[in-house]
Amino acid sequence: MNKIISSASAGTLESSDVYIEVEPSENNEVSVESVVLKQFGDSIVKTAESVLDELDIKNAKVHIIDKGALDCVIRARLETALRRAEKENK
């Protein structure tokens, strides 16, 4: 199991992008704000959970502010944020 040890963020609030904040927590927790919440809200949560699984992280509180990003972009931004959070804050 991998652990995140600091809070971190990745991405932007530009169109087709997503801004993701992560911080250490007891369990994985995912919350989503999105311009396409009605159409893709559930899918975004599932994507986030699958990235957490793939990276074997179980202690991340994840907050997603989505501006219509594609799945592969959400995956990239979350992975970036988690990788950053695996290191000490500079």
Partner: peptide, 15 residues
């Protein structure tokens, strides 16, 4: 740099 690298990798993977 890290973010761009992962983003480019993912777009090549999925698109």
């Amino acid at each position: 740099k890290d973010a761009a690298r992962i983003l480019v990798r993912n777009t090549l993977k999925y698109l």
